[in-house]
Simulated scan of single mutants.
Amino acid sequence: MAVGEATLTVETAGPVATVVISNPARRNAMTPDMWRQLPLLLDRIEAEPAVRVLVLTGAGDTFCAGADLGDVDEMLAAGDASTAVVAEERLAAFAKPTVAAVRGACVGGGCLLAVACDLRVVADDARFGVPPARLGLVYPTPATRRLAALVGPATAKYLLFTGELIDAERAARVGLADEVVPADRLADRITDLTGSIAVRSQLSVAAAKEIVDGRADPERVAWWHGQARTSGEAREGVAAFHERRPARFAWTFPTGE
């Protein structure tokens, strides 16, 4: 990667894949090309059986300062069909657990990428903001509703109406952050958390994600229960509990799931 290049990179360590947002000249703002690239990367990572957890983070000491605003007329014309919306929706629908590791600015499109993840572990120097009212923009419907579902209508309105930044402590109080850690401990905490998730039954984790997110209809729920009956995951988990040993879970998504 050339110095100063705006790009997304993927780093894989065992069962954990990390997507790194890098645009040093613009505090890791997402360019149109980066928005278009993200769903393709997610498709590739999701299809890799060895990957059990996805981490999204920013290069250096900034998560993402938002979207590179570029052509305003093009943005206005796209509305809810923008490449940013497509990317955020793909991230929200990712079949495996996703964790945002946040340092520094997490603003605008960056904040909504973090909201599209399942969990957000943030450094104590993190700052969050959603600035459409500063720019005269109408935020996309899916992202706005996802934000409101996470933090509640009143806090979502506060963020959207004022465009003000909130610190990590307040983000944790309103549910925007799941954990706050010292900045120099963020990488270690992400390693510990993703390692814990990766050794759990991926059947249990994937089913829980779909059900919590409201994406599992009765037929799909019945499919998950069928997987639990036939996969051997529960028998292995119970045996490991009684034998006081780590469970050796082996379930992965069937091809095409």
Rank of each mutant, 00 (worst) to 15 (best):
R120P: 01
A126F: 00
L119H: 13
D124G: 01
L137G: 08
V121L: 15
T155V: 08
G152V: 04
R145V: 09
Y139Q: 14
P140K: 05
A126Q: 02
A123H: 02
V121E: 05
T141L: 09
K157S: 15
L159Q: 09
D125W: 04
V138Q: 14
F128K: 00
L135F: 14
L147V: 00
T155G: 00
D118H: 08
A148S: 13
A123Q: 00
R134D: 11
T141F: 05
L159W: 08
P142C: 07
P140I: 03
L135I: 10
P132C: 07
L119Q: 14
A148Q: 00
G152S: 06
A123K: 01
G136T: 12
V130T: 12
R134Q: 14
A126N: 03
L135C: 08
V121F: 04
P132G: 11
G129Q: 09
P131E: 08
V151H: 01
L119Y: 14
P140E: 07
G152E: 03
P132Y: 05
G136W: 12
V122D: 00
A143K: 05
R120M: 14
D124Q: 00
L150S: 04
T144D: 11
Y158G: 01
T141P: 05
A156E: 10
L137E: 13
A123L: 01
L147P: 01
T155E: 13
T141K: 13
Y139H: 15
L159D: 01
L159H: 07
A156S: 07
Y158R: 09
R134W: 13
Y158A: 08
A126I: 05
P131Q: 05
A154C: 06
G152P: 09
Y158K: 09
R127L: 04
K157H: 13
P132I: 07
